[in-house]
């Protein structure tokens, strides 16, 4: 793959306890679960290595306490990892000076928080202009820019409001606007929609996708909601007790779960919405049949016509070349995956 890597984490460890650095050194930077437990350390992140590619949406998913937020904070050095390296555009973030860090955060990173983290004493406009203000931009210039971003997130006319006068969804729009004000390259979102009720959450997810389709940022998105992850992600990393158990596209996670834990997670996902023809086709059968389906068609779309007809369908790629076949048999096997085990 020759995708450009924006952020690269190498063997990140974050342990809580007394002198965790020493402990890691003594165990060759690779303590076992037993060793960690015996020495009374709490592992937040264990040996996490992951690359974030330019322009992709990487969703880090896991239950609470799985270390996903800690890993995100290691990427922006809000938390200093106990061990490991973080490369941001090729530069080692952990070796950067305080001044360099402030500079990177001022111009290249934006972050959205679960509970919005708006400054209560500032109006919407002042909140959004805040990152520009600390850079020392002139008031007129920064407020102009802030107004643009507020318009972008659909809060026009609310510039003079204080956060407490806004609903949760509106507050998070302010949070989004603030993080976008500096036109960051990387956009960190820490469970941005978890504190909102389900209907608003859906609306905000659409809003997020709309913004991303315009802005094309590199995004690291944290959630504990698998449905949300599937809706938004290019790739998903699943974390469990501080470990990254699997990284892959949503389809890969469902069709080839690396562990039982991942399988358990993906069990209840409506496969028809997620899997495409390519992921369920019979790869050995490359005979050209009369009927064809595109490799990227979701099962949802092709199910009825495949199930109705008795014949086999060819799966073709964009160049109309046959790469496999789909029949009733594959379809049923895919949709009722649990039966595989029996």
């Amino acid at each position: 793959m020759n995708k450009e890597v924006k952020i690269s984490c190498k063997n990140i460890w974050k342990l809580y306890g007394e002198t965790p650095e020493k402990f890691l050194k003594n165990t060759n930077n690779n303590p076992t679960t037993e060793e960690i437990k015996q020495n009374n350390y709490i592992p937040a992140v264990r040996d996490a290595s992951i690359d974030v590619n330019t322009g992709e949406i990487l969703v880090i998913m896991g239950l609470s306490g799985s270390g996903k937020s800690t890993l995100l904070r290691c990427m922006s050095k809000l938390i200093e990892p106990t061990h490991g390296q973080v490369f941001f555009e090729g530069n080692d973030l952990l070796k950067a000076s305080e001044k360099e860090l402030i500079d990177i955060r001022r111009h290249k990173m934006g972050m959205v928080f679960q509970h919005f983290a708006l400054l209560p004493h500032r109006t919407v406009l002042q909140n959004v202009a805040f990152p520009l203000e600390v850079q020392g931009q002139e008031i007129q210039k920064r407020e102009e820019r802030a107004k643009d971003v507020i318009k972008l997130v659909g809060l026009e006319g609310r510039e003079k409001y204080y956060p407490r006068e806004l609903s949760g969804g509106q507050q998070q729009r302010v949070g989004l606007a603030r993080s976008l004000a500096v036109e960051p390259d990387v956009w960190f979102l820490d469970e941005p929609f978890s504190a909102l009720d389900p209907l608003i959450r859906k609306e905000m997810q659409n809003e997020f996708l709309r913004l991303q389709s315009m802005l094309k940022k590199t995004i690291v998105f944290i959630t504990h909601d698998f449905d949300e992850a599937i809706r938004l992600a290019d790739r998903i990393a699943i974390m469990y007790e501080g470990l990254i158990v699997q990284v892959g596209t949503p389809e890969e996670l469902i069709t080839k779960p690396a562990t039982d834990y991942v399988a358990e997670f993906t069990k209840d996902i409506p496969r028809s919405k997620l899997l495409n023809a390519e992921s369920i086709m019979n790869e050995k059968d490359k005979k050209p049949y009369e009927n064809t389906v595109n490799y990227s068609d979701k099962i949802e779309k092709i199910a009825s016509k495949v199930l109705k007809s008795e014949s086999i369908f060819s799966v073709v790629d964009d160049n109309k070349e046959v790469i496999g076949s789909v029949s009733k048999k594959e379809l049923i096997k895919a949709l009722f995956a649990e039966d595989k085990n029996e």
Binding site: R73, S76, L78, I102, D103, R105, R106, H107, M109, G110, M111, F113, Q114, H115, F116, A117, L118, L119, F130, P131, V134, Q135, R178, S179, F188
Partner: peptide, 11 residues
């Protein structure tokens, strides 16, 4: 979170 928001804004 508020403190982190401040740090991330580059204060």
């Amino acid at each position: 979170e508020i403190k982190e928001a401040g740090i991330m804004a580059g204060c």
